[in-house]
Write a protein that binds this DNA or RNA. Structure first.
Length: 809
RNA sequence: GCCGGGAUGGUGGAAUAGGUAGACACAGUGGACUUAAAAUCCACUGACCUUUAGAGGUCGUGUCGGUUCGAGUCCGACUCCCGGCACCA
């Protein structure tokens, strides 16, 4: 018998697949399509780890499975090569990104090929090449032309180590998402994309996708929908009124002060002369506060009385106006009506500054609310002390008061979102230049002649001056105005890498197309992405941005769908054996190369899938892989070592076919449900069951062929070899997926547990459908010794269970 | 604090219209084969107890309580772990 030589087989088939272009995407669109996509990685010097494979192997299995189910498959791979991650890698290595990026890509491709992933490499894309970023710039202009890209001065997050500003989504806690350096707030003019214009649709359309619940929740949370009423409050002695927003107008009669953000433009008018010193002192404290630790857990709210008073427009009561640091200038109107009795922060503030607490919602289930309450009651209840609205349930009163306010003409129903516009300028070298020039005469002008090439420079490192390294390249900066031909200066910031990744999934359908970012016909066939797999860390970055661009493209009539990724799945993180996250800096990255060398690509593939459910985090332990290797050897011997067993034929064993068909059914269902671990377990179980039973040649062949077919998406190398050994000429990957027979799957016999008082005492092997009468008789016989006090009742479920319940006396 | 997920043998994990807990695998023990090792094959492998044996019993899915003939699964309270958000009015 020929030995199973995994190394030789891996190499042999990887070569054949490459030579025959087996995984090339079919262009004849006569079949249903399936677009199966991985989050494209940035090329890292760490190389591809076993963690990356936890993403790529499942999608490879799905792609192979779907191909066998008769789909046209688009399964491409590319490189997120522009942007902070790729550039920081280069800087850390002390090399130019133009050197590291191609080098790391070559390594990644090599590593991907040795595990036998079925990518169509003719569609490979790289976001840092001019034929790609030309179109990223084109999209910038699309947004610009639609009024969705604008330049504005505001407070932004700046990472001192990376030397660039960041989007809000790129600030984790208070640190940079790449280097975890604490960010600073600086005032700077920057380019933004107006994602807030799409807040409502980004929220609403989450209903259209099949995504993990936690990702949907995170996006909802980030978008932050709030429905309420905005109304004006008169200020005594001032003509200007103060606008406030509340989601709880039902508590309006409980307002005992008004709180204004220290950054609010009205502050100067509010402060009375005798309060000026006190307010100045407060302002300095607030400034200091924000510089030190904004994260401190139980930060006390800070505030100061302005000396001004407001009038509650509903009951005309006069109440003080405070400046309060817990009121944000960046959300809603930057001022609130404070209701200490029914808002936690207002309550704490009121206690601290000895402001009155007026109860206007009662809920007797939660105890009586009164001035001596120990914390705010924020729930629903019955309105009290609220003029003509008293005795209404709070939810009803809420609507009534909104209508009343609208009737008075002092306010209206509004919706606010927490989402802010997407800051896309980066003061970094390695990105797509923003295609804008500033002309003395014409002002800001779009550059239509694309691409605006990134100049080749030696000094690519961030300047740290708050300016892009490109600002120092005179030949780049100085240009002529495309409109009037006069002298002009280029925008020197580059775009965030997340701009590049906001449309890459469209480029794969026509990666070399040069008339537009994509060939519309191809997009119509392939998009949206049917299955998108990657890490959960992009929940509110890439995934939100790509959804936004998709909607912009839809509105521009470029595409006919509104959500880019129909089904999204997140693989579980692979931790190093120490339990920590794998990273080069920790020196604990496990790469697949050695494992493949020692155990073979198929064993590694199986192990990645088998070790835990797909979406569960795991601690890597290479020891377990030996079990997969043993299993593959058993499969090999079962198929190839037939001649040794031929002598046993004739011993009466039960047919392996019902088991085979049950296994086909189980594997089919499990792949569809992303349960790869139990799919593999069921094939193993089947193998164990039939390994030593004798069968005639025809049966053996039938079993072997089907076994190879259902195993092939998981372990393609050994399956190709075995398929060939059986005398087949075509690749196993091009065979149709086996169908199971309903008849064979049906169980003829069942094992029925017999319980006494719910405790298992015996089991009964009977033919399915045996009558209750017979089973009860057999059951009583079997468990006679436990039946001592007489039977109270017998719980009987046909073909499933008998439980004899005894009398208790 | 809020939202989401989770806790099952020495280990990774199976099993939810409530119905034989521990599939499959790792590690371990014993045996077969072998000059030997590797590889392979077979058996055992939750804990505790009874028994000469065959066999049998009790407990057992984070904790406490409930519903039920019957709970890993449902309900209530709690503990711990992981992920996310964190002054958003």
């Amino acid at each position: 018998m020929r030995e199973y030589n995994q190394k030789e087989i891996d190499k042999k088939w990887q070569k054949i697949w490459q030579k025959t272009k087996l995984y090339k995407t079919l262009t004849i669109k006569n079949k249903p399509k399936f677009y199966c996509l991985d989050f494209f990685p940035y090329p890292s010097g760490d190389g591809l780890s076993v963690g990356h494979l936890r993403n790529y192997i499942p999608t490879d299995v799905i792609s192979r499975y779907k191909r066998m189910r008769g789909y046209n498959i688009l399964h491409p791979m590319g490189w997120d090569a522009f942007g902070l991650p790729a550039e920081n890698e280069a800087i850390n290595k002390g090399l130019h990104p133009k050197i590291t990026v191609p080098k790391y890509i070559t390594n990644y491709k090599q590593q991907l090929s040795i595990v036998g992933l079925s990518y169509d490499w003719e569609r490979e894309i790289n976001s840092s090449t001019p034929d790609y970023y030309k179109w990223t710039q084109w999209f910038f202009l699309l947004l610009y032309d639609k009024g969705l890209a604008y330049k504005a001065i505001s407070f932004v997050n700046y990472c001192p180590k990376c030397g660039t500003v960041l989007a809000r989504e790129e600030v984790e806690g208070n640190t940079c998402w790449r280097c975890h350096t604490e960010v600073k707030k600086i005032k700077k003019e920057q380019w933004f994309f107006k994602i807030t214009a799409y807040a409502d649709r980004l929220l609403k359309d989450l209903k259209l996708v099949d995504w993990p619940e936690n990702i949907v929740e995170m996006q909802k949370n980030w978008i932050g929908y709030s429905e309420g009423v905005e109304f004006e409050i008169p200020v005594t002695g001032l003509k200007t009124k103060l606008s406030v927003f509340t989601t709880r107008p039902d508590t309006i009669y409980g307002m005992t002060y008004v709180a204004v953000s220290p950054e609010h433009p009205i502050v100067r008018q509010l402060v009375s002369p005798n309060k000026r010193d006190e307010v100045d002192k407060f302002m300095r404290m607030v400034e200091k506060e924000s510089e030190i630790e904004r994260l401190s857990k139980e930060k006390e709210p800070l505030g100061v009385f302005t000396g001004s008073y407001a009038i509650n427009p509903l009951d005309n009561k006069t109440i003080p106006i405070y400046l309060a640091d817990y009121v944000l200038s960046t959300y809603a109107t930057g001022a609130i009506m404070a209701v200490p009795a029914h808002d936690e922060r207002d309550f704490i503030f009121a206690k601290k500054y000895k402001l009155p607490i007026k109860v206007v919602i009662q809920n007797t289930e939660h105890g009586l609310q009164n001035e001596n309450m120990e914390c705010a009651y924020t729930g629903e209840g019955i309105m009290v002390d609220s003029a003509e609205f008293s005795n209404l349930p709070s939810d009803e009163g809420r609507q009534k008061i909104i209508e009343y306010i609208e009737g008075l003409g002092i306010g209206q129903r509004v919706t606010y979102y927490r989402l802010r516009d997407w800051l896309i300028s980066r003061q970094r070298y390695w990105g797509a230049p923003i295609p804008i020039v500033y002309c003395e005469k014409c002002g800001e002008v779009a550059v239509r002649d694309l691409p605006v090439l990134l100049p080749d420079v030696d000094d690519y490192k961030p300047s740290g001056t708050g300016e892009s390294p490109l600002a120092g390249i005179s030949e780049f900066v100085h240009t002529t105005c495309p409109v009037c031909g006069r002298e002009a200066k280029r925008e020197t910031d580059t775009m965030s890498g997340f701009a590049c990744s906001s449309w890459y999934f469209l480029r794969f359908v026509s990666p070399k197309y040069d008339k537009a970012p994509f060939d519309k016909k191809e997009v119509e066939y392939w998009l949206p992405v049917d299955l998108y797999v990657g890490g959960a860390e992009h929940a509110v970055m890439h995934l939100l941005y790509a959804r936004f661009w998709t909607k912009v493209m839809y509105d521009a009539g470029l595409i006919n769908f509104v959500e880019p990724f129909f089904r999204l799945r997140n693989q579980g993180v692979v931790h190093a054996p120490t339990g920590k996250r794998m990273s080069k800096s920790r020196g604990n990255v496990i790469i697949p190369d050695e494992i493949v060398e020692r155990h073979g690509a198929d064993a590694l593939r199986l192990y990645e899938l088998f070790m835990a459910p797909f979406d569960q985090p795991v601690v890597w332990d290479t020891n377990g892989i030996i079990g997969q290797e043993r299993f593959l050897k058993r499969v090999w011997r079962f198929v190839v070592g037939r001649e040794n067993k031929i002598g046993h034929v004739g011993v009466n064993s039960s047919s392996p076919l019902p088991s085979l068909h049950r296994t086909i059914k189980k594997v089919t269902e499990d792949i569809e449900a992303f349960k790869f671990n139990t799919a593999i377990a069921s094939i193993m179980e089947f193998m164990n069951k039939i390994y030593n039973i004798s069968m005639d040649d025809a049966t053996h062949r039938e079993v072997a062929e089907n076994l190879i077919l259902i195993l092939s998406p998981f372990a393609p190398h050994i399956c190709e070899e075995l398929w060939q050994t059986l005398g087949k000429e075509d690749s196993v990957t091009q065979m149709p997926w086996p169908e199971y027979s309903e008849e064979l799957v049906r169980e003829e016999f069942v094992t029925i547990p017999i319980q006494v008082n719910g405790k298992l005492r015996a089991t009964l092997e009977v033919k399915k459908g045996t009558t209750r009468e017979i089973i009860e008789k057999l059951a009583r016989e079997r468990v006679k010794k436990w039946i001592v006090k007489g039977i109270k009742r017998i719980v009987y479920i046909q073909d499933r269970l008998v439980n004899i319940v005894m009398r208790l006396d």
